[in-house]
Nucleic acid binder design. Structure first.
Length: 418
RNA sequence: GGAGGCGUCGCCUAGUCCGGUCUAUGGCGCCGCACUGCUAAUGCGGUUUGGGUCUCAAGCCCAUCGGGAGUUCAAAUCUCCCCGCCUCCGCCA
């Protein structure tokens, strides 16, 4: 949710942000108009309420003979108030809708344009080459007895998979490695609920453009989260925080309908309906947000480097940002079977946009103000397993185990086909 | 799932039966000032949050007693729905 004061003071900045995103700047002017109308409605209703309050007191004070006339007046005012309040409620709803239609203002330096207009910031490691044909992660995983998508489909449908044997152990290894390094870096570990109320989903902005992506349990009015960013962000909703920053590393299963991605990444476990993820989430002073964002990115890079995965870092263009994000970096790993870069992690600076809607504030020099929230993937486990298998495969079908994972995998230096 | 109890401006608390200066009581904590050799103690004042108005300063106004709706001239107080917590029973990994 955008700051209405910023909007009033500098609407052109918001319009420019809209243009950078390739979205309609007219929503900015619609919001300005809605804001003005709401303020007019509030002023009128407040005034009438003040009159009615006085009239109501007068009823009590009135003498026996004055009473009927005074009561009449109070009743008339009550009707007027009711009508003015209805108009105010309408203006409030219009304002809210207009406010939800305006995404966060992008930060300086974010490249304008859409999905293909990203900027590559750096590449870590070389694109690997292999002097043997090579298998994709599903063939490798099947041979290792680590991934079973056929039975996943039989039991749950397409885009579901079982992780078995080394696959299951690899998942646990990655969770432990991710959580361990997060704790070491000062993040508070959290196991988060995967089912949340509508308010949590709405407050984090996932019921907007991405509503079709979200699973809903109709009978219980609960949603399955697509990322633990949702419960982590909602964790402190409505609170006043002291002693910023707060840093969390949340583990949860993630559920996505993948409604708009028919035919995309259908093979293997790159894009599935259910996967597990360790997500970092930070609440900081808005002045510290950009520095915190760099920290998150650094953590992501360190994690991928430790897994000996070659990757590149891109800055996502304005049009490809989520509505809450003001800047976003993705780390993309090289996927040998498809000879392309695949998004493994993503970190967004949401400035105070998300916190404003969730009511997460802290006491600053000028009173209570929304904090800044940031999120970043530490490890999306399924995809990381897919990349690990492909990148570290060898001609004989075995897979090299990076040193950092060995303590969690009974010291194994390689995984062998069964 | 069944029965009962509870939710008050940071924390605790009065008020709710029987609607009206509730403009929400008192204590603790916190902030300021005074007093004091320092600390403590004491005294005085302040201390929810959001919004509106305004030279965005003071001031004034409106809302806010878990959330929402209703009844009424008037709701912390009455009615209904929802949320949360507690106790007991049932069921359960």
């Amino acid at each position: 949710m955008i700051d209405l004061r910023l909007l009033r003071d500098d609407p052109e900045r918001v319009r420019a942000s809209q243009r950078a995103r390739g979205e309609d700047p007219a929503v900015v002017d619609a919001l300005l108009a809605a804001d003005e109308q709401r303020r007019a409605a509030v002023t009128r209703a407040d005034g009438l309420r003040a009159d009615q309050k006085a009239a109501s007191q007068a009823v009590r004070a009135a003498s026996e003979e004055d009473r009927p006339a005074v009561l009449e007046r109070a009743k008339a005012l009550a009707a007027e108030v009711k009508e003015a309040e209805a108009k105010q409620a309408e203006a409030d709803a219009t304002l809210r809708a207009a406010q939800l239609a305006v995404p966060n203002v992008v930060l300086d330096g974010v490249p304008a344009g859409g999905e293909q207009d990203f900027v590559v910031l750096e590449q870590v490691g070389e694109i690997p080459t292999y002097d043997f044909p090579g298998l994709d992660h599903l063939d490798l995983g099947t041979a290792l007895g680590a991934i079973d998508t056929e039975r996943g489909a039989k039991v749950s449908g397409s885009r579901f998979a079982f992780l078995t044997g080394w696959g299951a152990l690899l998942e646990l290894a990655l969770i432990n490695l991710a959580m361990g390094s997060a704790v070491q870096a000062g993040y508070n570990p959290v196991i988060a609920p995967a089912l949340v109320r509508p308010e949590a989903m709405e407050g984090t902005g996932f019921l907007g453009a991405h509503a079709a992506e979200v699973y809903k349990l109709e009978a219980d009015d609960l949603y399955l989260v697509g990322t633990s960013e949702v419960p982590l962000a909602a964790f402190h909703s409505g609170e006043v925080l002291e002693d910023l920053p707060y840093r969390y590393a949340g583990f949860s299963s993630c559920f996505r309908r993948e409604a708009g991605s028919h035919g995309k990444d259908t093979r293997g476990i790159i894009r599935v309906h259910q996967f597990d993820k360790v997500e970092m989430f930070c609440l900081v002073d808005p002045a510290e947000a950009e520095a915190e964002h760099q920290r998150l990115l650094a953590n992501e890079k360190a994690f991928l480097s430790a897994l000996e995965i070659p990757f590149r870092v891109i800055e996502v263009a304005a049009g490809d940002l989520g509505s809450s994000a003001a800047r976003k970096y993705d780390c993309e790993a090289w996927l040998p079977s498809q000879e392309r870069w695949l998004e493994l992690t993503s970190t967004s600076n949401c400035t105070d946009f998300q916190a404003r809607r969730l009511g997460i504030r802290s006491r600053g020099a000028s009173g209570l103000a929304p904090v800044a929230t940031l999120n970043g993937t530490l490890c999306a486990i399924g995809r990381t397993i897919a990349v690990l298998l492909e990148v570290h495969q060898r001609a004989d079908g075995s897979v090299h185990v990076p040193e950092v994972l060995r303590p969690y995998l009974a010291g194994r230096k390689e995984l062998l086909p069964q």
